[in-house]
Design a protein around this nucleic acid. Structure first.
Lengths: 136, 136
DNA sequence: AAGTAATCTACTAAGCCGATAGGGTAATAG
DNA sequence: CTATTACCCTATCGGCTTAGTAGATTACTT
């Protein structure tokens, strides 16, 4: 299951994508509309900013705003930043590969083969959806 | 990511499916072959037994064995027992549905729609694979 | 220059869950 | 009866999630 961090992050991105012009939106406003703890959301937005999805402006009239066009924001990338690996097993991951210490032979591991198939399908869905696709 | 419980459970089921005749296999033997903690595996096998996948026999010559034909064991059912919901969000789950307290309107929730699509694809993979499919 | 509005940073903490260990009980075979 | 094996209960340890609190920093406005 997704962590709340990921869920809130996606909801925040969606909220920003739905703004008419790209003027900064304050944390508190997003938090209120999406019913998220302000402080928790703050750390999530910060992460999204440091990862290159959002820009931030301090002071009066400040807030967070999308840096790129929602069409160019892949949900697969968003997922990896917020949640981590898309694969369900480290040994079945492309971006976060790690060998299992309990596996003698990867090629005969049934769990790995099954989860690799799941990963392929999940990846296809996440990569074919941009932020614009899910926001509207 | 999958819990070790699920991973170990799948590996144990696979191990049992690969036995020639269906004679009971001791916990310790499975644990040794798959490099799993005996005590942890014990609880997993017990769960699989209580869920109707395995039979158990006590005393000398005892152990665990498959109750059904591996062809008739759906990996989706295995997954739900070991890991829980297949959906990544409770609000996108069929078998474990739960309303989000932070969502005003489910129909416009972008996170939910995206994760429902992921769930559909994951489900398709897990349902189309039986234990026999992945073990051999 | 001062005041104010907002983000940024750091520290702390409760609570839950995954993973494992220990020890005792019950059933079964020989 | 004894050895063997599954079954059951409890406890622990660490790490992650989900926050809460306090203050520093930056930038805009007047």
């Amino acid at each position: 299951m997704l962590s709340k961090k990921t869920k809130y992050g996606i909801k925040a991105l969606t909220f920003l994508a739905r703004q008419k012009d790209n003027t900064p939106v304050q944390i508190a406003e997003i938090a209120k509309n999406e019913h998220i703890s302000i402080k928790f959301l703050e750390s999530i937005l910060l992460l999204l900013r440091n990862s290159g999805f959002l820009g931030a402006k301090k002071g009066k009239g400040g807030g967070y705003y999308l840096i790129k066009d929602p069409k160019d924001i892949s949900m697969a990338k968003v997922y990896r930043i917020l949640e981590g690996p898309i694969a369900l097993l480290p040994c079945a991951s492309h971006n976060f590969y790690e060998k299992c210490d309990d596996c003698d032979d990867e090629s005969t591991c049934a769990a790995r083969r099954l989860m690799a198939e799941v990963r392929d399908n999940t990846l296809k869905v996440l990569e074919s959806n941009s932020l614009a696709d899910i926001a509207f």
